[in-house]
């Protein structure tokens, strides 16, 4: 993938993530005030299509956004390059997508 396309994806996901992060932060502060517990989290998320969509989108965007950022760091600070760097970026994206999707499924659908 060209640098221009990676840049486009990085900025596009940034625009998408900005409001998502704001809501997520608000939710964290709210949840901490209420006293964080598994029951409280799962009661909110289980079977909720709204939260599944919200965090599904979040995971998708972050699985694109974070690997591109790490790629820049690896290239500039560790002098990585070439095919290795492309594969590492891709694998990081797959890892985040898989773990993230699994986490969303765990809190929304798990136990159903």
């Amino acid at each position: 993938m060209t640098d221009a396309r990676l840049y486009l994806l990085q900025r596009a996901t940034a625009v998408l993530l900005a409001p998502l992060v704001l809501v997520h932060l608000g939710l964290i502060l709210h949840a901490v005030e209420a006293g964080l517990s598994a029951a409280e989290i799962l009661q909110r998320t289980r079977g909720s299509i709204a939260w599944a969509t919200f965090y599904g989108l979040f995971v998708l965007a972050v699985a694109v956004h974070a690997p591109i950022g790490l790629r820049n760091v690896a290239r500039e600070w560790l002098a990585w390059g070439g095919r290795w760097l492309n594969w590492a970026t891709f694998l990081m994206g797959v890892l985040l997508l898989w773990l993230g999707a699994r986490a969303v499924w765990a809190v929304v659908g798990g136990g159903l």
């Binding site: 060209t2 640098d3 221009a4 990676l6 840049y7 820049n72």
Partner: peptide, 11 residues
């Protein structure tokens, strides 16, 4: 300037 090392490398 869109190739590797072009304008998109600027932070």
């Amino acid at each position: 300037i869109s190739r590797s090392g072009g304008c998109h490398s600027c932070h």
